[in-house]
Design a protein around this nucleic acid. Structure first.
Length: 272
DNA sequence: ACTGGATCCTGACTGC
DNA sequence: TGCAGTCAGGATCCAG
C-alpha cells in the first residue's frame, strides 16, 4: 500500500491536528501487527505532548516532549486518520490515540503488515531505520549513487530500486512508473545500466514521487489521507496495473512479469 | 555478499 | 451460490 507519497500525504494530513496536543488515552483493540504493539504505551504516553510528526522512509515518527518516539509503519494496507473521539470503530481499526482537543488518531490495517513500535533513543539509530538508504527527494540521492551501488549486481533493476538499502520509499507502483519514464527495462540487470541512464532514472523517481505527493498519493483500493480523502495520482499512472493495454506512447501492448515477488509492467518497445 | 523464495494477514476478484 | 485459486501498495528473514 502506502509508498512514500502516501505516507507523506498522511503525515501532512495528521500533523496539524496533533502537534502540540496532549495525549489523553490509548486504546489497542488488536496488538498483533507485524510485531506486537508494546503493552506499555499508555503509561509511557498519557499526559504527554506530541512534539512533531516526522517521516523517514515509509515510517512515521511521532516525537514526544521529554523524549521518545513512536514509530508507525503502514505496511501494505494501513491508514491513519483523524476522527472525532466518538466515531465508532469499524473492523480493522486496531488502535486509537485520543488527544485533549477531542481529536482521535486511528490506525486501520486489515492485513496487519504494519507496525507500531516505541523507541527511546535516537530513532535513526533504531535497527529498522539504521541501514536505510537516502531519501529519494534529498540532495544525496542521484544517478551517481544508484550507479555506484549497482556495480556488480546481477539482480533486475526493478527489485534493486525497491531495496530500501539502496533508496527508500520507492514501492511497486512508483518503481514501475519511474522505469517507464526513464525508458529502462525492469528486467535488466542492475549492474549493466550506464551512469547516464541511472541519472535519468533518478530524475524520473524524483519527478514521479513529487507529482504523486502533489496529487495526495495514489488510491488503488483503501488508501485515505489523514483527513480521510483518497489520493488522485491513480489517473496519472501510465503503466502500473495496465498489463495488456496499449503503451500510452507507442501503443505496443504492455507486458507483465513477476520480479522479486512483485508484478512489473512495462512496454517492451519503449523500455530496454 | 548477493540472490531468490517463503512468510506474515485479510479481502477482492476470477473462474469453474 | 459456493469454493478454490490468485493477487494486492511491504519488507524481514532464511537458505543456498
Amino acid at each position: 500500500m502506502p509508498e512514500l507519497p502516501e505516507v507523506e500525504t498522511t503525515r501532512r494530513g495528521i500533523a496539524p491536528h496533533l502537534e502540540g496536543d496532549t495525549l489523553v488515552s490509548i486504546e489497542v483493540r488488536q496488538p498483533r501487527l507485524r510485531w506486537p504493539v508494546p503493552p506499555d504505551l499508555s503509561p509511557r504516553l498519557a499526559g504527554r505532548r506530541l512534539q512533531s510528526v516526522a517521516r523517514r522512509a515509509k515510517y512515521l515518527l511521532l516525537q514526544w516532549e521529554g523524549g521518545g518516539t513512536l514509530l508507525i509503519h503502514l505496511g501494505m494496507s494501513g491508514s491513519l486518520r483523524i476522527v472525532a473521539a466518538d466515531t465508532p470503530a469499524e473492523p480493522h481499526d486496531h488502535i486509537d490515540w485520543r488527544f485533549g482537543n477531542g481529536h482521535c488518531l486511528r490506525l486501520r490495517d486489515p492485513r496487519r503488515f504494519g507496525a507500531v513500535l516505541w523507541c527511546d533513543g535516537d530513532p535513526h539509530a533504531h535497527p529498522l531505520l539504521r541501514d536505510l538508504g537516502p531519501e529519494p527527494l534529498a540532495d544525496t540521492f542521484d544517478g551517481d549513487h544508484l550507479h555506484r551501488l549497482a556495480q556488480g549486481r546481477r539482480m533486475a533493476v526493478k527489485p534493486f530500486l525497491m531495496d530500501n538499502r539502496i533508496v527508500v520509499g520507492v514501492g511497486n507502483i512508483y518503481a514501475t512508473e519511474a522505469l517507464f519514464r526513464a525508458g529502462i527495462d525492469p528486467t535488466r540487470a542492475a549492474g549493466r545500466i550506464s551512469l547516464a541512464r541511472y541519472r535519468r532514472l533518478a530524475e524520473a523517481v524524483r519527478a514521479v514521487l513529487s507529482e504523486a505527493i502533489a496529487a495526495g498519493g495514489t488510491t488503488l483500493r483503501d488508501f485515505v489521507s489523514g483527513e480521510g480523502r483518497p489520493g488522485y495520482f491513480r489517473q496519472s499512472l501510465q503503466v502500473y496495473g495496465r498489463t495488456g493495454q496499449p503503451c500510452p506512447v507507442c501503443a505496443t501492448p504492455l507486458r507483465a512479469k513477476r520480479l522479486g515477488q512483485r508484478t512489473s509492467t512495462w512496454c517492451p518497445h519503449c523500455q530496454h
